[in-house]
Amino acid sequence: MLLGVDLQLLSQYVIAGLMIGVLYALMALGVTFIYSVMKMINWSMGQFYMLGSFIQYLLVVRWLGPDLWFVALPITAACVFVIGAIVQVVLIRPMFTGGIERRDEYATEITIALLLLLQSLATVLNGPDEHTPGSHLPNFTVGTLPVGGATLAASLGGITALILFAVLLRRTWVGLALRAAAQSRVAVQTAGVDLMRLDMIAFGIGVALAAIAGALLAPVYLVYPTNGAVTTTKGFEIIIIGGLGSIPGALIGGLLLGLAEALGSVFIAPAYQNAYGFVLVIAVLLLRPTGLFGERLRAA
């Protein structure tokens, strides 16, 4: 017993918290990645999560079947990458090429409008029903916690996606350019890189990461038009904890949020599960306003 809590129950909560934390990190990574490169916040990230879950559902149910969910996953990511790239070209790019003075306001308006549009479209096209692509994966036991096969696959898939993303950033020319743009957009442009094309790729990758989270979690948290709402909330909690624009911050922030919710649930009450993340956010803002891995900007 620890503080009156059964150790087996505590260990189950910690395992569950870490597993959900990996997926939280994946949800937040797209937001922070787009910000780091394009210096704008995409408020419609939850709707790309929703799109990912719907595309995965259609691929699995209509063509591939539950056993080939992992084949559907990269197709889903590719589809949402293309959708994201088109959105960037049509709606976001004018902010950089159209002489808009207050880009932050424009980006906020356009992405919130996109959020409403995608959510409403999904409701109109799909109706109110929930769906699931289903899963034939058996249950497992991780430590002392019984875990659904789909949940375990989602966590492992999330870790794999994070590793592939790190490899992309570290080992490819595009990754090098993206990292350089995150440091200085002007410097990258003066080096001859097509910044508009780079933005398109960054936006596409960012929303594809959210879509991967949606696709992985489709059999676990179901598929319906507003299933991305939680993603948006958790994603922004994480980037405040980890620091806006920090990729390691998104990873650590996701895990910390998952743990905070788990430990708060076991030591206080599960009823306030969603409140523990906000307590953590407030604590971080008080102690380190830039987030755990965020950097203070130097004004000229």
Binding site: I100, Y106, L117, S120, T123
Partner: peptide, 23 residues
């Protein structure tokens, strides 16, 4: 004017999304 035009795109999106709401 260009700024207003771009903001107009956002406003148009909001109008379209409102038109898609179920009520």
């Amino acid at each position: 004017m260009k700024t207003m035009g771009r903001v107009g795109v956002a406003a148009a999106l909001l109008v379209v999304s409102a038109a898609c709401t179920p009520n």
